[in-house]
C-alpha cells in the first residue's frame, strides 16, 4: 500500500470516528452531566459532611495560624485527598452501576476547556493546599471559640463558595449561562 493511501485511509477512519462521536455525544454528555450531578449531591450530603468533620476533628490540633507551614500539613493533605477521592468513587459506583472512574476522568480531560462552574472549582479546592490549610484554620478558630458557626457544612463552603442552593443549580447554569 502506498503511503498516501494509508494517510487517506487514516483520515477516513478519523472522520468516521468523529461522526460516531457526534452522533452519540448526547448520550455521553447526559451520562457525564449525570455524574457531575451525583458528585454535587454527594458533596452536599450529611454523610460527606460527617466524613469531613471527623477528619478535621482528628487533625485540627496540628495546625497553627502562622504563615509558615509545617511538613506534617503535607502528609495530612495527602490523606485528605485520598479520603475524598475514595469516598467519591465509592458513592458514584453505588449510584451508577456502570460507573468507571477511568472513563469519567477521560471525559473530564476531553472537556477540560469547558469545565466551568462551581462544582469544578470546589473539586479543585480539595486538592488546593492553601484552601486546605485555611479550612483547618477556620475549623480550629471555631473550635477554640471564635465566631464562625460550624453547624452546617461550613467546612466545604469556607473557601469562597456560595451557599448550597447555588450549588444545586450549577449544572443548568453552566449550560444556559451565555
Amino acid at each position: 500500500m502506498e503511503a498516501s493511501d494509508v494517510i487517506s485511509e487514516l483520515q477516513c477512519v478519523d472522520f468516521g470516528e468523529e461522526e460516531i462521536f457526534t452522533s452519540c455525544s448526547n448520550e455521553v454528555d447526559t451520562k457525564f452531566d449525570l455524574t457531575i450531578g451525583h458528585i454535587e449531591d454527594i458533596i452536599m450530603e450529611d454523610k460527606f459532611q460527617t466524613l469531613q468533620n471527623n477528619f478535621l476533628e482528628k487533625f485540627y490540633s496540628e495546625f497553627d495560624d502562622t504563615e509558615e507551614n509545617k511538613f506534617i500539613y503535607t502528609d495530612i493533605h495527602k490523606d485528605y485527598i485520598n479520603l475524598i477521592e475514595k469516598c467519591l468513587e465509592e458513592e458514584l459506583s453505588g449510584r451508577m452501576p456502570d460507573f468507571s472512574m477511568q472513563e469519567f476522568t477521560r471525559q473530564l480531560a476531553e472537556r477540560k476547556d469547558d469545565l466551568e462552574g462551581e462544582i469544578f472549582e470546589m473539586l479543585l479546592t480539595f486538592s488546593d493546599f492553601v484552601a486546605f490549610k485555611d479550612m483547618f484554620l477556620d475549623y480550629k478558630a471555631a473550635k477554640e471559640g471564635k465566631t464562625i458557626d460550624l453547624s452546617d457544612g461550613l467546612t466545604v463552603t469556607s473557601v469562597d463558595m456560595p451557599s448550597g442552593c447555588d450549588l444545586f443549580s450549577l449544572n443548568g447554569q453552566s449550560i444556559s449561562k451565555d
Partner: peptide, 14 residues
Amino acid sequence: MGLLTILKKMKQKE
C-alpha cells in the same frame, strides 16, 4: 492517579 489530582493537573495547564 485519583480524580482530584487529575483535575488539578488539567487545570494547571491553564
